[in-house]
């Protein structure tokens, strides 16, 4: 049979791999999408190439935020001394759940932020004089889209560092707790897929419309905020359920 500490190590390595690999899928796609639309924007307005490439780089750096979070979680799982004070199967499942939560949680925001960045570049090519407003709106939209990946980061950090310690659990109780932690990770991971992408869509369209109708900027931004807040509510439901699974059982 495997020793307790070995199970913990296996789970940590598996979680690290899952976290960073899932996150790279969407970050790569999103950055590529931004670069592609920036290229077609460049052909529409070759004179503002400086501004376009600058805003493309900034948006790609912000898109990478989710992937950086997953890299951090996987480095913490690999090197962060997580096996000190091990709890056997419960600890192992919490580490695996942290990897799954962060990996799945950064998929949606990656797609969303890439979409926002791409449409902001298109808007810039249409209205180069309004670059301050468009870039500001793009940054706000991407930040809103990444709120869900931050929820996933919070849950993953709590799963790694703030698991309540229990003594003398029977095997059945241990399995119940282990499955609850896995459920918390899956819950926040899948729960943030939709909202992240959707808020990116909202923000991308808003940036595009600011490029077309710059005078209606306040109206557009207000609608963007309300729409983003409503689509974010499902991510907040999953955050609440994840907290309940972790601490209320």
């Amino acid at each position: 049979m495997l020793e307790n500490i070995e199970i913990v190590h296996i789970a940590a390595y598996l979680g690290a791999a899952i976290s960073v690999s899932l996150a790279s899928v969407s970050a790569g796609y999103g950055e590529g999408y931004t670069a592609g639309l920036a290229n077609s924007a460049l052909m529409r307005q070759p004179k503002s190439s400086d501004q376009l490439s600058r805003s493309m780089l900034v948006s790609q750096a912000v898109t990478e935020t989710g992937a950086i979070f997953s890299l951090v979680i996987s480095l913490l799982l690999l090197f962060g001394g997580v096996d000190r004070g091990s709890l056997g199967i419960v600890r192992a499942s919490s580490l695996l759940a942290a990897g799954i939560a962060m990996g799945l949680g950064s998929v949606g925001p990656g797609f969303g932020s890439g979409y926002t960045g791409g449409y902001a570049c298109m808007a810039l090519s249409r209205m180069p004089k309004r670059h301050n407003e468009i870039t500001g709106n793009m940054l706000i939209g991407q930040a809103l889209a990444q709120a869900s990946s931050i929820f996933a980061l919070v849950v993953a950090l709590l799963l790694i560092y703030a698991i309540p310690a229990f003594d003398n659990l029977t095997l059945i109780q241990q399995i119940i707790r282990a499955v609850a932690y896995l459920g918390a990770g899956l819950c926040i991971g899948f729960g943030t897929l939709g909202p992240g992408t959707a808020i990116g869509y909202v923000a991308g369209r808003a940036s595009d419309m600011i490029g077309r109708y710059p005078r209606q900027r306040t109206l557009t931004m207000r609608t963007m905020f309300v729409g983003a807040a409503v689509s974010e509510s499902t991510a907040i439901y999953s955050l609440v359920i994840a907290f309940l699974l972790m601490y209320a059982l």
Partner: peptide, 11 residues
């Protein structure tokens, strides 16, 4: 409050 502060902290 959580999302605005954890974004900075996490980065």
């Amino acid at each position: 409050a959580i999302s605005i502060s954890f974004r900075l902290f996490g980065n």
